[in-house]
């Protein structure tokens, strides 16, 4: 039976892993490679890495990070942040990504979704959707890392991206991000009821029970978080254990030890 997934989200700003609150990037946590090493050993089902850097010129550094982490991650990896063309998608896939996440460019140029899905298959294209309540207290899709309103309602937009060929939705509540109040379950339900592709929930997890609620009440297929996994030993392992004990159908939590060879032969150039 298909299992629900637990997915840590690693947010990278100018080469460093950061925490985020309402899309404001706060403290630097450390290096992405270290984070991936821990998560890979601590029973996660997948890893998402997003580049949120605004300064141009840091993109090469981000590509270096992806190459580095892919050598150490033996669970699927989704890479995203500012992806605008299929050439870069291809580059990320070559570097070891399994899926890519598209956000701003999907709204600016919806054909990009269909082009990418046609070229790489729907299963490779995750559309990331950031949602915030607007001034009239209605859900609205925001792009440009939460800065630009689009006038789109999330339900209307997810139906559209599914039609265009997206394979998965990564749904973030900007209002809940970093606030530890749990997922926006109402938003999650609305989205999950209106698509037939899998939905990953993100934003607001403050305790392990929030993951359970995201799946059981919100109807998400997979649950993701960032801040809560940092600074704690075996964080993802413990979260997984909680989910299994709550009766969810997950891969059993186990510690994995995949030791890389003493003298790995990385002869290939990228």
């Amino acid at each position: 039976m298909l299992k629900n997934r637990l997915i840590p989200n690693i947010i990278v700003n100018n080469g460093h892993v950061v925490q985020s609150r309402n899309f404001k990037h706060t403290n630097v946590v450390g290096y992405a490679i270290t984070a991936v090493d821990f998560f890979n050993n601590w029973a996660v089902d997948e890893i998402i890495i997003l580049d949120v850097s605004r300064q141009p010129g840091n993109r090469d550094q981000f590509h270096n990070i992806i190459q580095g982490v892919s050598r150490r991650s033996f669970v699927p990896m989704t890479v995203g942040g500012w992806i605008r063309d299929t050439t870069e998608i291809n580059q990320f896939l070559k570097e070891g990504a399994d899926k890519v996440s598209i956000n701003t460019e999907a709204v600016n140029n919806p054909n990009f979704i269909s082009d990418a899905a046609k070229m790489f298959g729907s299963q490779c294209i995750v559309v990331s959707i950031d949602v915030k309540k607007n001034q009239v207290n209605e859900y609205e899709v925001f792009i440009d890392r939460g800065r630009k309103p689009t006038g789109l309602h999330p339900v209307e937009w997810v139906k559209e991206v599914e039609k265009l060929g997206a394979g998965e939705i990564f749904l973030t509540s900007i209002d809940h991000d970093g606030t530890k109040q749990g997922y926006d379950l109402k938003l999650l339900q609305q989205v999950c009821e209106n698509v037939t592709i899998p939905v990953i929930a993100f934003g607001g997890v403050g305790k392990w029970q929030d993951f359970v609620d995201g799946i059981k009440i919100g109807k998400a297929d997979a649950v993701s978080a960032a801040n809560i996994f940092h600074y704690t030993q075996q964080s993802t392992f413990n979260a997984k254990k909680y989910l299994v004990e709550a009766g969810l159908n997950m891969r059993m939590p186990e510690f994995y030890k995949l030791s890389t060879p003493r003298n790995p032969k990385y002869t290939e150039t990228y």
């Binding site: 190459q67 291809n90 070559k94 070891g96 070229m119 790489f120 890389t260 032969k265 290939e268 990228y270």
Partner: peptide, 22 residues
Amino acid sequence: YGMGNVRSIYNAFNLLGEEVCI
């Protein structure tokens, strides 16, 4: 052949200590 997650598979066989090329 210009598409595919060649890197991941390369890394996996590398982990097994195998000589592998793309």
